[in-house]
Write a protein that binds this DNA or RNA. Structure first.
Lengths: 349, 349
DNA sequence: CTGAAAGCGCTTACAG
DNA sequence: CTGAAAGCGCTTACAG
């Protein structure tokens, strides 16, 4: 069943049928009605391969997701897909392994599929610096800022990681914590952890202390298993910690389990703070204190920017951060008396 | 940059280039080498639209996923994608809302994209009965059995839901539980819950009791939030339960939180059993006792069957169940003394 | 082993 | 408003 059949069945020519199908002007109402009637009757659907071959009109959008374990991305995917659908655009999600080269994949896709644009969920700066130039389609990066990458044509929307991480440390500090361990990410491949680490260090200095990353920071991938193992390693060499700050909720949840297995209670013995604010974090026991990234806004701004770019609106490249919120739930214990006797002492290390 | 350019650059004809690209026989080594050299040099990639237009060779496989919240599917997707990749096949995942019509989506995709085949993760029998006949491409269903649907050409691989559910009840029974609540699914749209409920009822009868589904069963979707709310409703009308069996780990995790919020301890006051054996279930506090579905095997059998079907190996339709395992972890308390005085009493209700 | 040619199912100037 | 024709980038008999 192809367009030729419809032409024959409707009594109109191939060109007219095509025009009706594409909602082009210059078709009589009678022709339009007749053609649509036939189309409906036989359940005809145009062959997209042929259509795209001809129009060179990019097929759809590609959502490149770095890692399948990171629940934060799940939230964003869900929302972004909805937004694309609203705009009547197709979007296809491609999962790439956390260690794989998402940009190389995109370059390849760009060549063989010609997507309208790419929405990256997470990204490794070195991959981008290496291969980004080869992507022709518009691109937007989410959850990472590409501000300092010096890449033409790559907008990014993210949480201010440094600020957010600093606010976590400030909060823990307020609660009386001084010996704080940090978990997650990989300084070499992910600027996210680099930025968050910078925030941690900054907050420590602001309180007149300094963060010993050698001893108190343990990198790991964004999965529960990795968080579990990393927490174990951390606890091994630093068993005097009173709090752990994980750079992802999934990591925090793994750490929660590890801490428990080591015989500590959360938050009684050790407090835990996560990052992301994914759904699971509010169902854990205890509920996880965490930084909520605004996935809805992230998705919205990203999709809008991408759509605008493909429509040729030559908006300049923008690097925007969306507001975050510290969700104070149950996994952090205040080490201070309920009503501090001398509040100003709080700052002392 | 198209195949014509390669022909010109290599000094061979269009046909020869195409043959090299497709690894067809009847090309001299010299020609092959020369063409590949040029291809490499200019980084040429064939246009898949054009290729598929011509070959009528379906583009790729489609993985239709029912619901984005069900972590069980995440596991299977990850594994299935790996398997497709190994077989050098492209696979594309389509998330469809838990309440949406996955078959209608597939029918549409089948028409416009001509995928080589569909791998369904979860499925609603009424949707299948309605629309399945309109799908031309081979299909395989995972995690649900389609044995009784009477559909030609639909193979399925699943866990024996009835058996597995019965084994959970047996286990709880052994542990001395009699007042057991059940959570999850929707009898009307999902046979999965229907089968599991049948297993529950069967096990109850086997123990000389009967399951009061009116009072002790509460349906819900497969998400933590839904599990949380359903558990709350269940506890509202049946506060004497000593155990809850949830038809999904995500539901169980939501229930765990709800039970905790109602002031009960798990497993001290209420035991909880999940279903699926997803990763998260081993990181919760307490670790979740659950039925592990063998996602690796499910994915493998499913992908193999689908691949075979597209290769025209007219294997007959098969409905297979893969082995499950009851993972006894920490969320179930035995109500019996460590060494029962009269073991044969265990069967009494 | 290689080339010239037809055709996959569409869209879109170009005439009329 | 409508039709006939060219062409999108490829594959594949068919000759040679």
């Amino acid at each position: 069943m192809d367009i030729r059949d419809i032409a024959r069945l409707s009594g109109y020519s191939l060109g007219t049928v095509s025009r009706v199908l594409n909602d082009h002007p210059g078709v009589s109402d009678r022709a339009r009605e007749r053609v649509l009637e036939v189309v409906r009757e036989v359940g005809y659907e145009p062959n997209t391969n042929a259509r795209h071959l001809k129009t060179r009109n990019r097929a759809s959008f590609a959502i490149m997701v770095k890692g399948m374990q990171n629940l934060l991305f799940n939230d964003i995917i869900e929302k972004a897909e909805g937004l694309f659908a609203e705009a009547d655009e197709e979007a296809r999600v491609h999962f790439v392994d956390e260690d794989a080269d998402e940009v190389a994949r995109a370059v390849h896709l760009d060549r063989i599929r010609h997507p309208k644009g790419f929405l990256f969920l997470g990204g490794d700066p070195s991959n981008f610096k290496e291969g980004f130039g080869q992507i022709g389609a518009p691109c937007v990066l989410l959850t990472n800022t590409a501000e300092d990458w010096g890449l033409k044509g790559l907008s990014s929307f993210s949480t201010d990681d440094e600020e957010a991480a600093a606010s976590v440390i400030d909060y823990l500090w307020e609660c009386g914590h001084r010996r704080i361990g940090v978990l997650g990410g990989n300084r070499k491949v992910s600027e996210v952890s680099e930025h968050r680490l910078a925030g941690v260090a900054r907050a420590f200095s602001a309180h007149g202390a300094s963060f010993d990353s050698e001893r108190c920071y343990e990198p790991c991938r964004f999965s529960m298993r990795a968080g579990y193992e990393a927490a174990m390693r951390l606890l091994e060499r630093a068993d005097d910690l009173t709090a752990i700050f994980a750079f992802g909720d999934v990591i925090a949840l793994g750490a929660l389990r590890a801490v428990t297995d080591r015989g500590f209670r959360v938050p009684l013995d050790i407090s835990i703070v996560g990052f992301d604010g994914v759904d699971v974090s509010q169902y854990s026991v205890p509920r996880l204190t965490t930084v909520r990234q605004d996935t809805g806004l992230l998705a919205r701004r990203g999709v809008e920017a991408l759509l605008a770019a493909t429509r040729g609106e030559k908006g300049r490249v923008v690097h925007e951060s969306v507001p975050f919120r510290l969700l104070r739930r149950e996994s952090v214990l205040s080490l201070l008396p309920a009503t501090p006797v001398e509040p100003e002492e709080g700052r002392r290390s």
